[in-house]
């Protein structure tokens, strides 16, 4: 088994979903998470606040600098993530496909180099 990160690729521009649409998405996501748990692959999921809530810490000599805002401004950001533990890429892609169908946004599937 190997860990994979499923990130939700969220566009910075564009209309956010309406409340009704959001309710549908949250329902889909809850269903998907319980399916992942049932399949024994689910490790963690969460939705992230917008990038402008971020704080960046950077080492500078012996000091650590604190800056307000995201590390880089991008056209897309990680809006949420799921970590799964799956036997191989085909299995991970199956859950990635389910995720993009549930949320309606692109999903990036990326293997972990190491995980506890």
């Amino acid at each position: 088994m190997a860990h994979y990160l499923l990130s939700v690729v969220t566009p910075t521009e564009g209309e956010p979903p309406s409340e009704d649409e959001m309710n549908v998405i949250m329902g889909n996501v809850a269903k998907l998470q319980s399916d992942m748990q049932e399949a024994g692959v689910w490790v963690f999921s969460g939705g992230l606040e917008a990038p402008d809530t971020a704080t960046v810490l950077r080492r500078s000599g012996d000091d650590v600098l604190v800056t307000d805002g995201p590390f880089v401004e991008l056209k897309e950001y990680v809006g949420g993530l799921t970590i799964i533990d799956a036997p191989d890429l085909d299995a991970a892609l199956h859950w990635g496909r389910r995720s993009t169908e549930a949320i309606g946004l692109a999903i990036e599937v990326r293997p972990f180099h190491w995980a506890p």
């Binding site: 190997a2 036997p87 191989d88 890429l89 085909d90 991970a92 599937v109 990326r110 293997p111 180099h113």
Partner: peptide, 9 residues
């Protein structure tokens, strides 16, 4: 790295 499986679908 991504564990692309070595098998016939």
């Amino acid at each position: 790295a991504a564990r692309i499986p070595y098998r016939v679908p």
